[in-house]
């Protein structure tokens, strides 16, 4: 009856709810596909779900939303992810 007045304290995740957070990034993760062993640790640890897992378990980065926190690079056991400055020669 008055259920349309039911306002619930929960939300469902949707991509880009906060805008394109990729612009927040100072360092960008760059994956060396030659070194990658497809262990998927980066995919598992990424707090923003911006590591994209492909069918063959290879991975890439969704740069529109990756904030550049570097957790993937830190977790990678074979150092296949390098954090590269977005702006070269800055301050």
């Amino acid at each position: 009856m008055e259920e349309d007045h039911l306002v619930l304290p929960l939300s469902r995740p949707a991509p880009g709810a906060m805008g394109k957070t990729g612009t927040w990034r100072n360092y960008k993760p760059v994956i060396d596909q030659g070194k990658c062993i497809k262990c998927l640790l980066c995919w598992l640890y990424c707090p923003e779900a911006t590591i994209i897992r492909h069918e063959d378990n290879s991975v890439s980065v969704d740069y529109e939303y990756c904030k550049g926190c570097g957790i993937c690079a830190n977790e990678c056991p074979v150092k296949a992810i390098e954090m590269v400055p977005e702006v070269q020669g800055g301050a």
């Binding site: 008055e2 007045h5 039911l6 306002v7 619930l8 304290p9 929960l10 939300s11 469902r12 995740p13």
Partner: peptide, 24 residues
């Protein structure tokens, strides 16, 4: 199916939720 409970809404949404409880 992901659901976020108790996250930070706009203050006006918080106020509407309290009103919703009172109506209930």
């Amino acid at each position: 199916s992901g659901v976020i409970m108790g996250n930070i809404p706009p203050d006006e949404a918080f106020y509407r939720m309290r009103h919703s409880m009172q109506r209930a």
